[in-house]
Amino acid sequence: MSTTFWIILAGAIATYLTRIGGHLVISRFENIHPRVEAGLNAVPAAVLTTLVAPAVLGAGPAEWAALIVTALVSLRGGLMAMFLAGAAVLIIARQFVG
């Protein structure tokens, strides 16, 4: 087997450990402390924000326009409508401001 294959296999195992690890740790406890539960409830907003924030800061007018439209549409529409609206604004805006 090539080195590449072993890198892929080890990477896959490491990744699966992260995907199952949090559950394995938490499930060892009979009761979840209210503060831990509060922390878990904060996970979606906390993690997903870190995937957006640095990208927003490093972006330009075209990207900002797309994000603003995305935010406005998300107040009313569903996930697909929001995504398509944001993508459309981005592609159109980039034809003008690159």
């Binding site: 409830n41 935010a71 998300s74 996930l79 929001m82 995504f83 944001g86 981005l90 592609i91 690159g98």
Partner: peptide, 23 residues
Amino acid sequence: HALGIDFLLPIYFLGLVLGFRKR
């Protein structure tokens, strides 16, 4: 770049973040 590919995921993730705004 012209197709906006590099910025599609931040857009999608922003939508997901906003989806949790009532929490």
